[in-house]
């Protein structure tokens, strides 16, 4: 094999080992039945039993868990609610991130490296600790309420922690850099003389932005949206720590199936469905990127 091929093989091997193999284990589990044993599902593949054992094993697998998911509205509602939370927080993140990225791209060259580093800086602290910090800020006796009370903007403390609002704040905060960086990357590459040309031809600054800057930054916007939407969809930590009892998200539902119900087969089925749902936007994203590179 040529050395270049060998290098290409490494990511594929990585993908097969760390994504495909576990995924097949999860699919296999989702077709099994619950049991009181170690591990808590049946059938177990026993290769020592020869061919007969393997056929018996295949025969015992079924789609029962998927019918179970379809029968109980809980799962569909969890998916729906995750979809809404992920979409809305993606849009809010975009609204917050775009001006930041724009300001970064317009900043003087010598400041940029430092400013970009400031965007990445939060990653130096553990994600978990940063989400925990929001508990201290948002709780009834927390920093935010104390501040608002002391300046007299509110007379009673706001209940933000343990509501969906807190979940939105947590997601927007946590994923902001994933939106800022790709948008900044496209804006930075942009040829700013195009704006000058638009203005020379009589376009206002605002319409120049909408007609020139924004369309040119679209690949970055789309990449950022996917980078936020996809992990937000399956998010567990943020709704668990900041959300309340009303917060319904598929990550939490999956946790309950896996830990409280000890129902690994149904939990696996939920995970497979989640993955299938996420494959659709991922494929769309890939297509769009490909088109862009062909056109470019």
């Amino acid at each position: 094999m040529k050395p270049s091929r060998l290098i290409i093989a490494i990511p594929y091997l990585w993908l097969a080992l760390l994504f495909l193999a576990p995924f097949f284990i999860v699919i296999k589990m989702s077709l099994s039945d619950l049991a009181v044993s170690i591990p808590p599902y049946t059938p177990q593949l026993d290769l020592s039993g020869g061919w007969e054992a393997i056929t018996a094993y295949w025969a015992a697998l079924d789609l029962e868990n998927y019918t179970w998911l379809a029968d109980d509205p809980l799962y569909i509602n969890s998916f729906k609610s995750s979809l809404i939370i992920a979409s809305v927080s993606t849009l809010i993140t975009l609204a917050v991130a775009y001006p930041i990225a724009y300001a970064l791209a317009c900043s003087p060259q010598r400041w940029r490296a430092l400013l970009v580093m400031l965007v990445i800086l939060p990653f130096w602290t553990s994600f978990l600790i940063r989400v925990y910090a929001w508990i201290g800020i948002l709780k009834t006796e927390g920093l935010l309420n104390q501040l608002l009370l002391s300046v007299g903007m509110i007379s009673d403390p706001l209940t933000i922690l343990n509501t969906n609002t807190a979940v939105y704040i947590g997601i927007v905060y946590s994923y902001l850099p994933f939106m800022v960086l790709p948008i900044y990357a496209t804006l930075e590459k942009m040829d700013w003389s195009l704006i000058e040309a638009a203005e020379d031809l009589g376009s206002s600054r605002l319409s120049a932005f909408w007609l020139v800057t924004f369309p040119l930054s679209l690949p970055g916007v789309i990449a950022g949206c996917f980078l936020v939407f996809i992990p937000a969809m399956g998010e567990f930590v943020i709704p668990d720590l900041l959300g309340g009892s009303d917060t319904l998200m598929i990550g939490k539902t999956l946790w309950v199936e896996f830990f409280s119900n000890r129902d690994w087969p149904v939990a696996s089925a939920v995970a497979v469905v989640l993955l299938v749902l996420l494959i659709v936007p991922i494929v769309l994203f890939q297509r769009q990127q490909q088109k862009l590179s062909e056109a470019g």
Binding site: L34, V36, D72, P73, L74, N77, S78, S245, D246, T247, L248, T253, V256, S260, N261, D263
Partner: peptide
């Protein structure tokens, strides 16, 4: 028992999330 446990946890989800 496992069957009753399912009823209990499903009920608990309903209590916690209203679903």
């Amino acid at each position: 028992p496992p069957k009753v446990n399912r009823v209990v946890t499903r009920m608990w989800t309903k209590v916690k999330t209203g679903q």
